[in-house]
Nucleic acid binder design. Structure first.
Length: 280
DNA sequence: ACGCCCGCCTGTAAGC
DNA sequence: TGCTTACAGGCGGGCG
């Protein structure tokens, strides 16, 4: 399940692969993928003939800047993948829902078995924030928007939610999902159900540090690929960070720090993994 | 304000 | 072995 580290890995690879390329044609093979648009035809018309000028990211969204200042937004959802094909002749993977063909040859393909992902073209950002209107709700970026710990503390103090709910709230901080929320909370030594406003200054500092370091390290290892909804990068390769996981998907295994057994609890239909000894 | 549920999806794996 | 069921979860919406 692609979260910030996986999306950032793809963003960095895309930069060298698609910037400067002109979109010759667009094929939409599953209309659900472009559901924000009235029709696939209108989606295609917004892209054909455009050149990609930049590749950005906002939370879990990829932002492909176009030469008319519009933005192709790519959201991978649960199971979305972008695949770089050197030639149109390469066989298409099952669930290939959209294909961009470049004038210089080669394709960018969107593959998404569970179809939670989507593509849409957004109007140029209007308000000077640099953010397209559809993504205006997103909170700060944990890696781009560095803030002092006391400002972070002030943000936490305003809320009375569990730490896990807060970390996963895209309107608070953008890019963290179920998996990295658990890993960050382990690294911070904090339980998922601690109320955000109850943290001491030391705990706030630990949380902020854990957030930045966990996500940075995961990017260095090119993200996490698990058995379910295998994340793959632009070239079909798996990530390596799953080998570093401390708690996520490690139910029943010994904590790498204290050897206690990692437990799984369920709430709201979601799993949380934690070490009850290391996280207080 | 917040917790929790549902619906949207399909591949995988566990259970009978 | 073969069928059924549960599970994975990002996100938007709704309900209490």
């Amino acid at each position: 399940m692609p979260e910030l580290p996986e999306v950032e890995t793809i963003r960095r690879d895309l930069q060298g692969e698609v910037v400067g390329r002109k979109i010759k044609s667009v094929e939409v093979r599953n209309g659900r993928t472009v559901r924000r648009h009235p029709s696939a035809k209108l989606f295609r018309a917004r892209l054909e003939g455009r050149t990609i000028t930049s590749v950005g990211r906002a939370g879990k969204y990829l932002l492909l800047g176009l030469d008319n200042d519009e933005v192709l937004v790519v959201h991978l959802g649960m199971s979305g993948q972008l695949q770089r094909a050197k030639s149109a002749k390469e066989p298409k993977a099952p669930h290939t829902h959209a294909v961009l063909t470049f004038t210089q040859g080669g394709q960018l393909r969107f593959v998404d078995p569970r179809t939670f992902g989507e593509l849409f073209v957004a109007e140029p950002p209007q308000d000077g924030s640099g953010r397209v209107a559809e993504l205006a709700h997103l909170g700060f970026d944990p890696l781009e928007d560095v803030m002092s710990w006391d400002r972070f503390w002030a943000l936490l103090a305003k809320r009375n939610v569990s730490l896990k709910a807060l970390l996963m709230d895209q309107e608070f901080v953008a890019g963290i999902g179920n998996m990295y929320a658990d890993e960050i909370l382990f690294a911070a030594g904090l339980r998922y159900d601690r109320v955000s406003s109850s943290l001491s200054s030391q705990e706030v500092r630990r949380l902020q540090r854990a957030m930045v370091e966990t996500l940075s390290e995961a990017i260095k290892r090119r993200g996490s690929s698990l058995a379910d909804a295998q994340y793959r990068d632009l070239f079909g390769e798996v990530g390596e960070y799953q080998g570093q996981h401390q708690v996520y998907d490690r139910e029943g295994k010994p904590c790498r720090r204290c050897r206690s057994i990692i437990v799984r609890v369920r709430s709201g239909g979601r799993s949380t993994f934690l070490c009850e000894h290391c996280q207080v």
